[in-house]
Design a protein around this nucleic acid. Structure first.
Lengths: 132, 132
DNA sequence: TAACATTGTGTAATAATATAACATTAACAT
DNA sequence: ATGTTAATGTTATATTATTACACAATGTTA
């Protein structure tokens, strides 16, 4: 039908960086890290980020203004995202729970409004930080 | 036990403004609107916002960097928030669903991590915008 | 292939959002 | 009245994100 979405050079550079990072990356930290590869301006970063978010390769952690690679069933899910965020170490994990996504996908409010998209962020302490 | 949390002058001015607004307000738009009342600097606004969020009188809409007054059971809920956001007109409504909050409050991920807080944002079209 | 549309790029400037640092004042509990 | 905590006022600055414009690469499709 159509081949796997091919990334452009800038998109690939930025995706690789985020994908390798153990934690969410912020736009200007990304910029700093890719300057040696010729990406010099914020806008170049933001454009790549926008596209990568759009096609579901990365997600934005809204409460942190940071980006992580999607590790959820080969990154098709840009419309239904859930994360757990440790308030001490700031570790972020994408939650992949069939039950949760089913519940939220079917959720209707009082007005019967149906939603095309959601983002859920849980906050708490991760295992390591709980033990400290 | 302890009386209702009394707001300070700045907090009250800013809360009143947000509370009267039919839509989420952004920090600098708040600043602009309260300058005639003697609040001159961003920091004064952000400090009041922080406090108001902390005590649950307002919530931050993370995806929009904007703030709305809490209309959920007398504003005690700073730790469990859910909103619906219209992607066309940007209308934001706080969702108050016993089922939803119960489900999310009890949600545990694979690691058994329990959460102390969550924020959920649904996106879609509101009634009006659906009809257009 | 030429013409067109669409998407991505490079660059400079600037807008919008948020915090740091410091001095001072108000509120309130001993 | 003294110490403590929270709030204030002010200046400066950091961080996050977008506008505007010119151009290049890619992909139709006629």
């Amino acid at each position: 039908m159509h081949k796997e979405h091919a990334l452009t050079k800038n998109q690939q550079i930025i995706f690789d960086l985020i994908d390798k990072s153990p934690e969410p990356m912020k736009a200007y930290s990304i910029l700093f890290n890719v300057q040696k590869k010729g990406i010099k301006a914020p806008l170049q970063v933001y454009r790549a980020l926008d596209k990568l978010v759009q096609i579901g390769k990365i997600h934005k952690i809204e409460s942190r203004n940071a980006f992580i690679a999607c590790h959820n069933s080969s990154c098709q899910v840009a419309k239904a995202t859930a994360f757990s965020i440790c308030e001490i170490c700031e570790k972020v994990t994408e939650i992949s729970s069939a039950g949760l996504s089913k519940y939220l996908a079917n959720f209707k409010d009082k007005d019967g409004m149906k939603y095309s998209k959601y983002n859920l962020e849980f906050f708490g302490l991760c295992k390591k930080c709980t033990l400290k």
